[in-house]
Nucleic acid binder design. Structure first.
Lengths: 351, 351
DNA sequence: TTGTAAGCGTTATCAC
DNA sequence: GTGATAACGCTTACAA
């Protein structure tokens, strides 16, 4: 390249000091500086101190990039998520960040902004800068995922069932979760249900629907309607009218975001919850407990998902065997947004 | 180092292909491969195609680390925040991530977990892996900040007034914001106020207090009590009793998180809002609008803060002059959690 | 238009 | 114990 033709050992004013400059200043070789910096082997105390002094004088910090190239590892993991606006993924991010930090790893975030097409390239690009990948791609077709995974290994996939794919995965048992919610609502006497569905290609949405189908099959007396809604808070807000025009006494929102949006709109419309309709969410985001009424939901260990993801990656990075796929079974959180079925259905009949 | 003594041009099975392997495969020099990869200059079409074929065959992707070392830039920015759990910072993260992505930059996150002591080292460490830094350090003493900033330049500081410090900064005018809230509450007839204060060392908390002092000084007839509370939703929840035992008819929470927590608890206690007390927040996080009652708050352009931060950094990275410090003036969002002062103060007297 | 070779800043091997 | 020196994989003057 031959960029700087001046003496490379000149302690540039603004340019960060290099190991060579420290070596010159301390009157030793670069190798020795490197040893001191890494607390390696036995360097004569006198020399070591001389090096440390030079380091202080020059304000030297080793170049991470150069180390990465030499060591062949970056000490960085990437997290690819479909939407950073979702509190669920924010918690996963926190979990990964905190757990990785303990092992001296940093986290690079990549938000695909729900753009399924870009997700593949984003993951590959992110993986190139890092030693490993945490991939959250609920909408990516399984075929594409299959092609992608070997390219970005080591990677752990979060939040979707990989089925036969032999890759490390941490998933939520959404089917079981939604069945748990249904069981709760059934026990309260509800028979007419409305499911506010999430994005249709979403794997977890499919799982929820399958769960509901099973319940429907085994409970002849009930009806479960489905309306495609979305995954965002605004979607829930906008769904209030659909909810009211439907005769259901219990609404299962795709997630807490949708549920909170719905709750907000219902409050504005002065529709009593759970007096008129019961509402459930999914995920148990931080706000669920503080919503009014507090939201009955399925608790998903969001931060734990992130922490476990890092734990598995760490294992892989150390040359360990891929873990088995792990399923988290959500836990029912009964709060105040669900209650007994009202005496009569429809706009204020009984009472 | 001399790690791999075997022929370096062997297309290793699992190891990622290098530029040298591509060069060999295509029968050209590495320089030519580099030119093709970067769409450089005029490479003979025939040769270029041969290179591209080799790239495809070998599944070659250039090493980002090696490029970074050679180019002297990583195409990465770091964001240092005190607490990723706060929706405010999550939005800033989104803003930075989205804006930086447009220019081909990725974002590294570092969460200091409210640990003020570690923040300095964290920032330095993060900066080393990146080309620039977005720093959110509301509690860092100004002296330490002064020492730190030159070391991590280029950096833009977010969310605090740097005063005389000549560094790029994006701040919120918290004093003006809280005064706006007070003006609103005063217009509703309130005279007894309670401020639920945030972390005491927090710069923005100080600014809020100064704003309140000014109002107090210019309005002899009113009283403004202060209770140190915190910045988290749980803190607001826990503050409900203190709020009720205080005679105030209007409560100004440190931020929306605190306000939502308070609202949640007040609802549980069946305390009418704003019937008994009015409540305000600060930040206008996503959930503020959907709280029950919807929260009157000061809107802070959170994502915009992130976007602008990137815009300024980009300018600096391109060799531009540091921008002047920018202040965002929050905008009052009147919603349903504030209302006229109740007829009588205390546990249900009038009515 | 293409190749040669130096250089980015580190680490690690191997003599001394 | 310490110092040359060759990598790591890429970019880019400069020569051909």
């Amino acid at each position: 390249m031959t960029r700087d033709t001046s003496a490379p050992t000149t302690p540039g004013a603004s340019t960060p000091a290099t190991i060579a400059q420290v070596a010159t200043a301390a009157g030793v070789s670069r190798a020795t500086v490197s040893r001191v910096m890494n607390g390696r082997a036995t360097v004569a105390p006198v020399i070591a101190e001389r090096v440390r002094q030079a380091v202080r004088d020059l304000d030297y910090t080793p170049s991470t990039v150069a180390r990465s190239l030499s060591l062949g590892r970056t000490n960085t993991v990437a997290l690819v998520v479909p939407d950073l606006a979702n509190p669920m993924f924010q918690q996963v991010l926190r979990g990964v960040t905190q757990a990785a930090a303990v092992d001296g790893y940093r986290v690079l975030v990549a938000d695909s902004a729900e753009n399924v097409d870009e997700e593949r390239l984003l993951a590959i690009e992110a993986r190139m800068r890092c030693d490993a990948l945490v991939l959250c791609a609920p909408r990516m077709p399984i075929a594409q995922l299959t092609e992608l995974l070997p390219r970005v290994s080591p990677t752990v996939v979060i939040n979707r069932d990989l089925g036969a794919l032999a890759a490390p995965a941490l998933s939520i048992d959404y089917a079981s979760g939604i069945k748990g919610l249904m069981a709760h609502l059934l026990s309260l006497g509800h028979t007419r249900f409305l499911f506010l569905g999430g994005p249709e290609q979403s794997a977890s949405n499919q799982e929820r629907i399958e769960g509901l189908s099973e319940i429907a099959a085994s409970h002849p007396g009930i009806t479960i309607d489905t309306v495609t809604c979305g995954a965002a808070i605004e979607d829930g807000y906008a769904a209030a009218e659909a909810v009211l025009s439907n005769g259901a006494t219990a609404v299962l929102a795709f997630n807490d975001l949708v549920a909170v949006g719905l709750l907000g709109r219902l409050a504005e419309l002065e529709v009593p919850v759970p007096g008129r309709v019961s509402v459930t969410g999914f995920d148990d985001i931080q706000f669920a407990r503080f919503a009014t009424p507090s939201l009955t939901t399925m608790s998903v260990p969001q931060m734990e998902l992130g922490r476990q993801a890092w734990a598995q990656l760490r294992e892989l990075l150390e040359g360990g065997q891929p873990e088995h796929a792990v399923f988290f079974r959500p836990r029912l959180e009964v709060r105040s947004s669900t209650g007994p079925v009202p005496d009569a259905v429809g706009p204020v009949l009984g009472a």
